[in-house]
């Protein structure tokens, strides 16, 4: 989404209920993450993912989503977590620099509307792996929701050497 649209959404949110941001929540490795809804284009089950030989291990492959070729990023690998033993994984479609990516995650949670004001910076004891991609946290009842910063998530993958072992 363009910055303009983003801003419009925020304004809309603000009007809706004084600085509320809607997040699509996902669970990765037991941790709850939130993606601003404006950034999420799709939620889908990743099917027929074609692996890309010699690519980085986080790149699960590429797939065809309604005629568009989407690069699937396995979030567990990205966050250095062990793979899911069983169960189907889900994917969240986002766009970054005009290209489509699918973040493969464990499950998709609810859409939460949270006040922007309650977003806090990363606590110092936040797991290092989450901190890499975190744009802040929200304290919820009994758990922490880490705000996923797409820029940091994907941007780092471009600068790191891409060749797989």
């Amino acid at each position: 989404m363009s910055v303009l649209e983003h801003k419009l959404n925020e304004v809309a949110d603000q009007k809706a209920g004084s600085d509320m941001i809607q997040y699509v929540t996902v669970v990765i490795g037991g941790q709850l993450f939130g993606l601003p809804i404006s950034q999420v284009h799709d939620v889908f089950v990743p099917e027929s993912v074609t692996r890309v030989p010699m690519s980085a291990p986080e790149v699960q492959g590429v797939l065809n989503l309604r005629g568009r070729i989407v690069t699937a990023i396995n979030m567990r690998r990205r966050l250095h977590l062990p793979p899911l033993k069983e169960g189907q994984m889900m994917a969240v479609g986002i766009e970054y620099k005009q290209e489509s990516y699918g973040l493969v995650i464990d499950t998709v949670g609810e859409v939460l509307t949270l006040p922007a004001a309650s977003a806090e910076p990363n606590p110092s004891n936040l797991d290092r792996r989450w901190a890499e991609i975190s744009g802040g946290v929200h304290r919820l009842d009994g758990q922490l929701m880490v705000i996923l910063d797409v820029d940091r998530l994907l941007g780092a993958m471009f600068t790191e050497p891409m060749v797989a072992a």
Binding site: S48, V59, E99, Y101, F158, M162
Partner: peptide, 22 residues
């Protein structure tokens, strides 16, 4: 995709008639 552009073995990808990406 920009992320994968530096792979020398591949010059691109495509969607086949059966919908799969290769």
């Amino acid at each position: 995709s920009t992320m994968l552009r530096n792979l020398g073995m591949f010059s691109g990808n495509t969607i086949l008639g059966d919908g799969s990406v290769i």
